[in-house]
Design a protein around this nucleic acid. Structure first.
Lengths: 156, 156
DNA sequence: GTTGAAACTTAGTTTCC
DNA sequence: GGAAACTAAGTTTCAAC
Protein backbone atom coordinates (compact mmCIF):
# COMPACT_ATOMS: atom_id res chain seq x y z
CA UNK A 1 0.00 0.00 0.00
CA UNK A 2 1.14 3.49 -0.75
CA UNK A 3 2.19 5.86 1.99
CA UNK A 4 0.12 8.74 3.26
CA UNK A 5 1.21 12.30 2.68
CA UNK A 6 0.36 15.35 4.74
CA UNK A 7 -2.88 15.88 2.76
CA UNK A 8 -4.09 12.36 3.50
CA UNK A 9 -3.28 12.69 7.18
CA UNK A 10 -5.10 15.98 7.42
CA UNK A 11 -8.13 14.53 5.63
CA UNK A 12 -8.15 11.52 7.94
CA UNK A 13 -7.91 13.75 10.98
CA UNK A 14 -10.91 15.75 9.77
CA UNK A 15 -12.95 12.68 8.79
CA UNK A 16 -12.35 11.13 12.19
CA UNK A 17 -14.28 14.09 13.57
CA UNK A 18 -16.92 14.26 10.84
CA UNK A 19 -17.19 11.48 8.31
CA UNK A 20 -20.02 13.35 6.57
CA UNK A 21 -18.00 16.46 5.76
CA UNK A 22 -18.28 17.25 2.06
CA UNK A 23 -15.25 17.57 -0.18
CA UNK A 24 -16.08 21.24 -0.46
CA UNK A 25 -16.09 21.63 3.33
CA UNK A 26 -12.76 19.87 3.59
CA UNK A 27 -11.26 22.07 0.88
CA UNK A 28 -11.39 24.93 3.39
CA UNK A 29 -8.78 23.16 5.56
CA UNK A 30 -6.88 21.22 2.93
CA UNK A 31 -5.22 23.02 0.04
CA UNK A 32 -6.62 20.77 -2.66
CA UNK A 33 -9.59 21.03 -5.01
CA UNK A 34 -12.82 19.29 -4.03
CA UNK A 35 -12.29 16.74 -6.78
CA UNK A 36 -8.79 15.83 -5.61
CA UNK A 37 -10.12 15.54 -2.04
CA UNK A 38 -13.02 13.34 -3.07
CA UNK A 39 -10.64 11.14 -5.04
CA UNK A 40 -8.27 10.65 -2.11
CA UNK A 41 -11.08 9.87 0.32
CA UNK A 42 -12.63 7.38 -2.06
CA UNK A 43 -9.26 5.64 -2.47
CA UNK A 44 -8.68 5.50 1.28
CA UNK A 45 -12.09 3.96 1.84
CA UNK A 46 -11.39 1.38 -0.84
CA UNK A 47 -7.88 0.41 0.27
CA UNK A 48 -8.83 -0.01 3.93
CA UNK A 49 -7.12 3.09 5.29
CA UNK A 50 -10.61 4.05 6.37
CA UNK A 51 -11.94 0.84 7.89
CA UNK A 52 -15.49 2.01 8.51
CA UNK A 53 -17.71 5.02 9.01
CA UNK A 54 -19.87 4.79 12.07
CA UNK A 55 -22.66 6.84 13.56
CA UNK A 56 -22.05 7.55 17.24
CA UNK A 57 -25.35 7.22 19.08
CA UNK A 58 -26.09 9.17 22.24
CA UNK A 59 -25.97 7.32 25.53
CA UNK A 60 -29.58 8.50 25.99
CA UNK A 61 -30.65 5.61 23.76
CA UNK A 62 -29.90 3.44 26.84
CA UNK A 63 -30.09 3.10 29.77
CA UNK A 64 -26.91 1.07 29.85
CA UNK A 65 -24.61 -0.34 32.49
CA UNK A 66 -20.94 -0.46 31.53
CA UNK A 67 -18.30 -2.58 33.22
CA UNK A 68 -14.56 -3.06 32.85
CA UNK A 69 -13.65 -6.70 33.25
CA UNK A 70 -10.04 -7.76 33.91
CA UNK A 71 -9.46 -11.37 32.92
CA UNK A 72 -6.65 -13.69 33.96
CA UNK A 73 -6.26 -16.55 31.53
CA UNK A 74 -5.28 -20.14 31.99
CA UNK A 75 -2.34 -19.95 29.63
CA UNK A 76 -1.65 -23.67 29.44
CA UNK A 77 -4.04 -24.23 26.57
CA UNK A 78 -3.85 -22.03 23.50
CA UNK A 79 -6.88 -23.24 21.59
CA UNK A 80 -9.39 -22.41 24.34
CA UNK A 81 -7.99 -18.87 24.52
CA UNK A 82 -8.53 -18.34 20.81
CA UNK A 83 -12.07 -19.61 21.12
CA UNK A 84 -12.75 -17.33 24.06
CA UNK A 85 -11.49 -14.31 22.12
CA UNK A 86 -13.63 -15.17 19.09
CA UNK A 87 -16.71 -15.55 21.23
CA UNK A 88 -16.09 -12.31 23.13
CA UNK A 89 -15.46 -10.31 19.96
CA UNK A 90 -18.67 -11.65 18.44
CA UNK A 91 -20.76 -10.43 21.37
CA UNK A 92 -22.46 -7.10 20.66
CA UNK A 93 -22.34 -6.15 24.34
CA UNK A 94 -18.53 -6.28 24.29
CA UNK A 95 -17.29 -2.95 22.97
CA UNK A 96 -13.62 -3.37 23.80
CA UNK A 97 -11.27 -6.35 23.97
CA UNK A 98 -7.63 -5.57 24.71
CA UNK A 99 -4.72 -7.91 25.35
CA UNK A 100 -2.60 -6.24 27.99
CA UNK A 101 0.71 -6.77 29.77
CA UNK A 102 0.71 -7.44 33.51
CA UNK A 103 -1.02 -9.82 35.90
CA UNK A 104 -4.26 -9.70 33.91
CA UNK A 105 -4.25 -10.78 30.29
CA UNK A 106 -7.48 -9.40 28.85
CA UNK A 107 -9.40 -6.24 29.43
CA UNK A 108 -13.06 -5.96 28.40
CA UNK A 109 -15.52 -3.13 28.26
CA UNK A 110 -18.96 -4.67 28.47
CA UNK A 111 -22.21 -2.75 28.06
CA UNK A 112 -25.56 -4.22 29.04
CA UNK A 113 -29.04 -2.95 29.92
CA UNK A 114 -28.82 -3.65 33.65
CA UNK A 115 -27.19 -5.68 36.40
CA UNK A 116 -29.23 -8.80 35.66
CA UNK A 117 -27.96 -8.71 32.12
CA UNK A 118 -24.42 -8.27 33.35
CA UNK A 119 -24.71 -11.33 35.56
CA UNK A 120 -26.17 -13.28 32.66
CA UNK A 121 -23.27 -12.17 30.49
CA UNK A 122 -20.65 -13.10 33.08
CA UNK A 123 -22.26 -16.50 33.63
CA UNK A 124 -22.57 -17.38 29.98
CA UNK A 125 -19.39 -15.79 28.60
CA UNK A 126 -16.86 -16.06 31.40
CA UNK A 127 -17.77 -18.19 34.41
CA UNK A 128 -17.47 -21.67 32.96
CA UNK A 129 -14.91 -20.95 30.28
CA UNK A 130 -11.86 -23.23 30.45
CA UNK A 131 -9.57 -20.39 29.33
CA UNK A 132 -10.63 -18.07 32.17
CA UNK A 133 -8.77 -18.54 35.44
CA UNK A 134 -10.44 -15.60 37.16
CA UNK A 135 -11.88 -12.18 36.46
CA UNK A 136 -12.52 -8.92 38.29
CA UNK A 137 -15.21 -6.41 37.49
CA UNK A 138 -15.24 -2.65 37.92
CA UNK A 139 -18.44 -0.83 37.10
CA UNK A 140 -18.31 2.40 35.17
CA UNK A 141 -19.79 5.36 37.00
CA UNK A 142 -19.46 7.78 34.11
CA UNK A 143 -18.12 7.83 30.57
CA UNK A 144 -16.21 11.06 30.24
CA UNK A 145 -14.67 10.42 26.83
CA UNK A 146 -14.85 7.58 24.37
CA UNK A 147 -13.52 8.04 20.87
CA UNK A 148 -11.93 5.88 18.19
CA UNK A 149 -9.98 8.84 16.74
CA UNK A 150 -6.21 8.41 16.52
CA UNK A 151 -4.03 11.39 17.45
CA UNK A 152 -2.83 11.86 13.88
CA UNK A 153 -1.16 15.19 14.55
CA UNK A 154 1.23 13.43 16.92
CA UNK A 155 1.85 10.24 14.99
CA UNK A 156 5.07 9.20 13.34
CA UNK B 1 -37.36 14.69 23.02
CA UNK B 2 -39.57 12.13 21.44
CA UNK B 3 -39.11 8.45 22.01
CA UNK B 4 -37.58 6.07 19.54
CA UNK B 5 -39.72 3.43 17.90
CA UNK B 6 -38.57 0.13 16.44
CA UNK B 7 -37.79 1.77 13.08
CA UNK B 8 -35.50 4.34 14.70
CA UNK B 9 -33.69 1.68 16.70
CA UNK B 10 -33.17 -0.45 13.64
CA UNK B 11 -31.87 2.53 11.68
CA UNK B 12 -29.49 3.45 14.49
CA UNK B 13 -28.23 -0.12 14.71
CA UNK B 14 -27.51 -0.08 10.97
CA UNK B 15 -25.91 3.38 10.98
CA UNK B 16 -23.63 2.38 13.84
CA UNK B 17 -22.19 -0.16 11.42
CA UNK B 18 -22.24 2.05 8.32
CA UNK B 19 -22.97 5.74 8.64
CA UNK B 20 -22.68 6.11 4.85
CA UNK B 21 -25.46 3.68 3.99
CA UNK B 22 -27.96 5.36 1.67
CA UNK B 23 -31.65 5.62 2.49
CA UNK B 24 -32.26 3.24 -0.37
CA UNK B 25 -29.81 0.71 1.09
CA UNK B 26 -31.47 0.96 4.48
CA UNK B 27 -34.91 0.48 2.96
CA UNK B 28 -33.93 -3.14 2.33
CA UNK B 29 -33.83 -3.78 6.09
CA UNK B 30 -36.38 -1.28 7.33
CA UNK B 31 -39.95 -1.38 6.05
CA UNK B 32 -40.20 2.31 5.22
CA UNK B 33 -39.74 4.31 2.02
CA UNK B 34 -36.36 5.95 1.35
CA UNK B 35 -37.86 9.37 2.00
CA UNK B 36 -39.25 8.40 5.39
CA UNK B 37 -35.90 6.85 6.29
CA UNK B 38 -33.94 9.92 5.19
CA UNK B 39 -36.29 12.12 7.18
CA UNK B 40 -35.89 10.11 10.38
CA UNK B 41 -32.11 10.01 10.08
CA UNK B 42 -31.91 13.74 9.46
CA UNK B 43 -34.02 14.41 12.53
CA UNK B 44 -31.92 12.11 14.70
CA UNK B 45 -28.76 13.88 13.59
CA UNK B 46 -30.34 17.24 14.38
CA UNK B 47 -31.78 16.36 17.78
CA UNK B 48 -28.58 14.77 19.04
CA UNK B 49 -29.69 11.14 18.98
CA UNK B 50 -26.80 10.72 16.56
CA UNK B 51 -24.00 12.62 18.25
CA UNK B 52 -21.44 12.34 15.44
CA UNK B 53 -20.40 10.36 12.42
CA UNK B 54 -16.78 9.32 12.48
CA UNK B 55 -14.42 7.64 10.07
CA UNK B 56 -12.57 4.76 11.72
CA UNK B 57 -8.98 4.82 10.54
CA UNK B 58 -6.89 1.68 10.33
CA UNK B 59 -4.26 1.11 12.99
CA UNK B 60 -1.79 0.91 10.09
CA UNK B 61 -1.75 4.72 10.05
CA UNK B 62 0.40 4.38 13.21
CA UNK B 63 2.60 2.96 14.60
CA UNK B 64 1.01 3.60 17.96
CA UNK B 65 1.57 2.51 21.51
CA UNK B 66 -1.57 2.18 23.63
CA UNK B 67 -1.68 2.08 27.40
CA UNK B 68 -4.38 1.65 30.03
CA UNK B 69 -3.75 3.95 32.96
CA UNK B 70 -5.50 3.42 36.30
CA UNK B 71 -5.58 6.58 38.37
CA UNK B 72 -6.19 6.98 42.07
CA UNK B 73 -7.31 10.49 42.92
CA UNK B 74 -6.70 12.70 45.90
CA UNK B 75 -10.34 13.17 46.68
CA UNK B 76 -9.94 15.92 49.23
CA UNK B 77 -10.10 18.69 46.64
CA UNK B 78 -12.90 18.73 44.10
CA UNK B 79 -11.75 21.58 41.89
CA UNK B 80 -8.40 20.02 40.95
CA UNK B 81 -10.20 16.83 39.92
CA UNK B 82 -12.47 18.76 37.58
CA UNK B 83 -9.48 20.51 36.06
CA UNK B 84 -7.65 17.23 35.62
CA UNK B 85 -10.65 15.72 33.83
CA UNK B 86 -10.98 18.72 31.52
CA UNK B 87 -7.31 18.60 30.64
CA UNK B 88 -7.34 14.86 30.02
CA UNK B 89 -10.46 15.03 27.84
CA UNK B 90 -8.90 17.80 25.77
CA UNK B 91 -5.80 15.72 24.98
CA UNK B 92 -6.02 14.03 21.58
CA UNK B 93 -3.88 11.11 22.76
CA UNK B 94 -6.51 10.22 25.38
CA UNK B 95 -9.15 8.10 23.66
CA UNK B 96 -11.01 6.95 26.76
CA UNK B 97 -11.72 8.48 30.15
CA UNK B 98 -13.94 6.47 32.49
CA UNK B 99 -14.87 7.09 36.08
CA UNK B 100 -15.00 3.69 37.74
CA UNK B 101 -15.94 2.17 41.09
CA UNK B 102 -13.26 0.49 43.16
CA UNK B 103 -9.80 1.35 44.49
CA UNK B 104 -8.93 3.33 41.33
CA UNK B 105 -11.10 6.27 40.33
CA UNK B 106 -10.21 6.92 36.70
CA UNK B 107 -9.37 4.70 33.82
CA UNK B 108 -7.62 6.08 30.73
CA UNK B 109 -6.78 4.66 27.36
CA UNK B 110 -3.84 6.64 26.04
CA UNK B 111 -2.39 6.30 22.54
CA UNK B 112 0.98 7.76 21.60
CA UNK B 113 3.61 7.21 18.91
CA UNK B 114 6.17 5.51 21.17
CA UNK B 115 7.45 5.00 24.70
CA UNK B 116 9.20 8.37 24.83
CA UNK B 117 5.93 10.05 24.00
CA UNK B 118 4.20 8.02 26.68
CA UNK B 119 6.71 9.14 29.29
CA UNK B 120 6.29 12.72 28.15
CA UNK B 121 2.53 12.36 28.46
CA UNK B 122 2.72 10.86 31.94
CA UNK B 123 5.12 13.56 33.10
CA UNK B 124 3.12 16.46 31.75
CA UNK B 125 -0.43 15.20 32.31
CA UNK B 126 -0.23 13.08 35.44
CA UNK B 127 3.01 13.18 37.44
CA UNK B 128 2.76 16.62 39.02
CA UNK B 129 -1.00 16.94 39.10
CA UNK B 130 -2.36 17.74 42.57
CA UNK B 131 -5.47 15.62 41.92
CA UNK B 132 -3.47 12.47 41.14
CA UNK B 133 -2.42 10.40 44.15
CA UNK B 134 -0.91 7.61 42.09
CA UNK B 135 -1.32 5.79 38.81
CA UNK B 136 -0.53 2.41 37.31
CA UNK B 137 0.10 1.68 33.66
CA UNK B 138 -0.61 -1.42 31.63
CA UNK B 139 0.56 -1.49 28.04
CA UNK B 140 -1.71 -2.85 25.37
CA UNK B 141 -0.25 -5.78 23.47
CA UNK B 142 -3.09 -6.02 20.97
CA UNK B 143 -6.41 -4.34 20.24
CA UNK B 144 -8.82 -7.13 19.48
CA UNK B 145 -12.00 -5.07 19.34
CA UNK B 146 -12.75 -1.41 19.78
CA UNK B 147 -16.16 -0.07 18.81
CA UNK B 148 -18.47 2.71 19.93
CA UNK B 149 -21.58 0.78 18.85
CA UNK B 150 -24.20 0.23 21.53
CA UNK B 151 -25.90 -3.19 21.66
CA UNK B 152 -29.25 -1.78 20.57
CA UNK B 153 -30.83 -5.17 20.05
CA UNK B 154 -30.43 -5.85 23.75
CA UNK B 155 -31.29 -2.46 25.17
CA UNK B 156 -34.36 -1.59 27.18
C1' DG C 1 -48.31 14.16 12.51
C1' DT C 2 -46.19 10.91 9.38
C1' DT C 3 -45.97 8.54 5.10
C1' DG C 4 -44.56 8.01 0.07
C1' DA C 5 -43.79 9.93 -4.63
C1' DA C 6 -42.02 13.51 -7.49
C1' DA C 7 -39.57 17.72 -8.25
C1' DC C 8 -35.54 19.93 -6.84
C1' DT C 9 -30.95 20.61 -5.05
C1' DT C 10 -26.57 19.18 -3.53
C1' DA C 11 -22.64 16.21 -3.46
C1' DG C 12 -19.93 12.45 -5.46
C1' DT C 13 -18.05 10.29 -9.79
C1' DT C 14 -16.14 10.22 -14.31
C1' DT C 15 -13.91 12.15 -18.15
C1' DC C 16 -10.79 15.12 -20.15
C1' DC C 17 -6.96 18.17 -20.15
C1' DG D 1 -4.24 17.62 -9.78
C1' DG D 2 -8.27 20.65 -11.42
C1' DA D 3 -12.59 21.74 -14.06
C1' DA D 4 -16.76 20.39 -16.24
C1' DA D 5 -20.24 17.09 -17.42
C1' DC D 6 -22.69 13.42 -15.45
C1' DT D 7 -24.83 10.50 -11.97
C1' DA D 8 -26.55 9.51 -7.55
C1' DA D 9 -28.28 10.71 -3.09
C1' DG D 10 -30.47 13.95 0.10
C1' DT D 11 -34.10 17.60 0.69
C1' DT D 12 -38.44 19.76 -0.05
C1' DT D 13 -43.07 19.87 -1.38
C1' DC D 14 -47.46 18.10 -1.46
C1' DA D 15 -51.34 14.99 -1.48
C1' DA D 16 -53.19 11.11 1.26
C1' DC D 17 -53.96 8.58 5.38
Amino acid sequence: MREWDAYDRKLLALLQEDALATAEDLARDVALSPSAIARRIRRMREDGTIVADRAVVSERIGPFLSAMVDIQLDRHALAPVGQLLSRLEARPEVQVVLEVAGPFDLLLLVVVPDMDAFNAFADSALADDPAVRRYETRFVKKRRKFTTAWPLDLAK
